[in-house]
Amino acid sequence: MSVRVSLVAAARGSSLLGERFDDDRPLDEAGWHEVQFAAAALVPLGAAELRYCSPTARSRATGQALGFAPMVQPALRDCDMGRWRGCTLADVTAREPAAVDAWLTDPRSAPHGGEPLLAFISRIGGWLDTRPACDGSIVAVAEPAVVRAALVYALRAPPSAYWNVDVCPLSTVTLTGLPRRWSLRLETGAR
């Protein structure tokens, strides 16, 4: 039996330029408006048998606003960015350009002292692979980085592909399959 996992990217908590590593900001006003606008399309996902969310404030708030009443899953936390936590990419690049270059090019490196990209992708893949195999469905609201990591893992893409996946707030992707045998499912707007 296979399982269907729909991943919903959390609404935004700050502008793109204000995004900080491993940030736990709540939804901002624009994020709340985005959730209200997208709710009609996303609320049906709440019929899933299992509903989860990342432990971040904006993931929890997005799931609650959509009526999912999700259970927090610590395994769906964002990548641990160590001493870079709370900094913008521009801040870190100005201070540690060689470290940023290493982080972007070597998935095993963790110049920030946190979690290497490869370990992050593996952790998210481990969560996917331990979902119950059933003919039902699961929905999880997570940070965009978590959704990117899940896609890279499910498609068995090289870790460098992580940097080529753009996940917009409130975008949704569905994975179907069994542990270590995932397929990406693209659906039409009509269900």
Results as ranks from 00 to 15, higher is better:
Ser137Ala: 15
Cys79Ile: 13
Glu115His: 05
Arg108Ile: 15
His112Leu: 12
Ala94Arg: 10
Arg108Thr: 15
Leu50Val: 14
Ile124Asn: 01
Pro107Asn: 08
Asp106Arg: 04
Pro44Glu: 13
Leu66Ser: 00
Asp78Glu: 15
Val146Gly: 03
Gly46Thr: 03
Pro74His: 10
Phe68Tyr: 12
Ala57Thr: 12
Thr105Leu: 12
Ala41Arg: 12
Ser59Phe: 05
Ala142Leu: 13
Pro116Ile: 08
Ser109Cys: 15
His112Phe: 08
Thr105Asn: 14
Phe120Lys: 00
Val100Tyr: 01
Arg83Gly: 07
Ser59Ala: 15
Leu117Phe: 03
Ser109His: 09
Phe120Met: 04
Val100His: 01
Ala150Asn: 02
Ser59Gln: 05
Ile124Leu: 10
Ala99Cys: 08
Pro97Asp: 08
Thr93Lys: 07
Leu45Thr: 03
Gly114Met: 05
Asp106Leu: 07
Arg108Leu: 13
Gly113Val: 12
Ile138Ala: 03
Gly82Ala: 11
Asp106Trp: 02
Phe68Pro: 00
Ser59Tyr: 04
Ala40Pro: 00
Ala90His: 09
Asp135Ile: 12
Arg148Gly: 01
Glu143Asn: 13
Glu96Trp: 04
Leu117Thr: 01
Asp91Thr: 11
Thr62Asp: 01
Leu50Pro: 00
Gln73Tyr: 06
His112Asp: 14
Ala149Gln: 04
Val139Asn: 00
Gly63Val: 06
Ala90Glu: 11
Asp106Ile: 06
Ala39Trp: 05
Arg85Pro: 02
Cys134Thr: 15
Thr105Phe: 07
Asp106Lys: 03
Asp135Leu: 14
Arg58Trp: 05
Ser137His: 07
Leu42Asn: 02
Ser59Cys: 12
Ala99Glu: 05
Met71Lys: 11
Gln64Tyr: 14
Leu104Ala: 08
Ala39His: 07
Gly86Ser: 09
